[in-house]
Simulated scan of single mutants.
Amino acid sequence: MADVSREFVGLESPLAPRAGAGGHPCQGLYHRPAGAWPRTAVIACHYNVDFAEHYLAEHLARRGYGFLGWNTRFRGNEAYFLLDHALAEIGVGVRWLRERAGVERVVLLGNSGGGSLMAAYQSQAVAPNVTPSGDRAAEAIAELAPGDFYVSLAAHPGRPDVLTAWLDPSVTDEADPLSVDPALDPYDPANGPPFDAGFQAAYRAAQLARNHRITDWAERRLAALRGGRAADRLFHTYRSWADLRMIDPAIEPSSRPPGRCYAGDPKAANYGVFGIGMQSTLRTWLSMWGMRTSQCRAAPHLARITLPALVVHANGDSGVYESDARGIHAGLAGEDRELHLLEGDHYFRRPAGAREELADLVAGWLGARGA
């Protein structure tokens, strides 16, 4: 296979200045076959994970494609995320591919959390719908360049959806990470596993109720801050490793390792200090995590995507489930859409050869469509 050329790309943002130390807000790595400038290229981006050296980049470059692993200024900076700003900065990367790299066909790859983010980008590009946070942001996302293909890879149905599915609803006091309602405690053996249907239904309803309570509180706090010295504030959301599927493998059976989450043992992770959505500003909660307020949910955006689309699910995934992939596939608006279930963990590190199989699938799917 071809050698791979890598180029650092650092670009201005329409909504944020270059750092005083010199760093550009928008940064990434462009991978391509050495000595070639492909006409089709992938761009992959996430809400906060650094995708510059995405694991598929070299594999697809060796198969003749360009791959821009792209980061907005929110990489590693999730607590301050704003969707409209991120979409504007993804647009910077897409324009670079078309105008500077000579790309004619752009593949929007949404991996993991990036699935709903890249869906929101295409949705905004074809039918502007994202609520802007200000006049400058409104202008920056008014005319985004659309993609030509959409790939959903080991993706969940959106940031508020996945957080709510993982939230521990037994928290009784948001200021106390150890507070617990025994009747809803997923780690109390009296409740399971196995978890009966009644407990599961009550648990899911309580998870949604907890999300709504935090949203209500955030809205009240923002209203109270208006006209004062502070326009926003930080807060913590504790205990977000408590999806019943992480604890009970009989719920949505798959080849995933039982009793595990991305952070290892879910009970230890749940009471630890690392987790999605653990720190937010009030505005970020409303933009990213609130089920009632966030536009980071995939479903409305998928309904505007008519591009040829590929949905790939990893059967051994510990945090994204087959029902998620099937829901994404069903939610797409285009007729040309495929769903593939492959063996592998969330990032296809296992089994041996999983990434090669995945790259062959993506390249073959694109090639069959003339890309």
Rank of each mutant, 00 (worst) to 15 (best):
P300R: 03
V362C: 07
G110E: 07
L339A: 09
C45Q: 10
D181T: 06
A145T: 14
G344N: 04
A57W: 00
A120N: 07
A165R: 14
Q295D: 09
A371H: 06
M291K: 08
E99D: 14
I251H: 13
R229V: 13
S179N: 14
R256T: 10
E104I: 01
V151C: 12
R98G: 05
G158P: 06
G192K: 00
M1T: 11
N77P: 02
D360E: 15
L286F: 06
A16W: 14
G227Y: 13
S5V: 04
L225H: 06
A223I: 07
A21H: 15
F67I: 00
G192E: 02
D135R: 05
E53G: 14
R6Q: 11
S179I: 08
C45V: 12
G93T: 05
Y47A: 05
L97V: 10
P300D: 06
D50I: 05
A303E: 13
L29F: 15
T281Q: 03
V130C: 04
A125V: 10
P249N: 12
L60D: 00
R226T: 12
L244K: 09
A52N: 05
I214M: 04
G327E: 14
V151Q: 09
R220P: 02
A34K: 12
V9Q: 10
F274P: 01
G93N: 02
S318N: 08
L358Q: 02
S254C: 10
T215S: 13
V320R: 02
V320F: 07
F274A: 09
E219G: 09
T172F: 14
L163K: 06
G115L: 08
A298W: 02
L234K: 09
R63Y: 01
W289I: 01
V9L: 12
V362W: 03
L286S: 03
S112T: 02
F51L: 15
D265G: 02
N111Q: 07
A52C: 11
M1A: 14
V151R: 03
R159Y: 11
Y80P: 00
P177M: 12
V362L: 15
A202E: 09
D345Y: 03
E78G: 08
L82F: 06
H59M: 02
P177W: 14
L117Q: 07
N270V: 04
V320K: 03
A197G: 04
R233H: 10
A354D: 09
H24C: 06
G344K: 01
H54D: 13
L153S: 04
R221W: 08
E322H: 09
F81P: 00
H156G: 13
Y65A: 00
A206V: 00
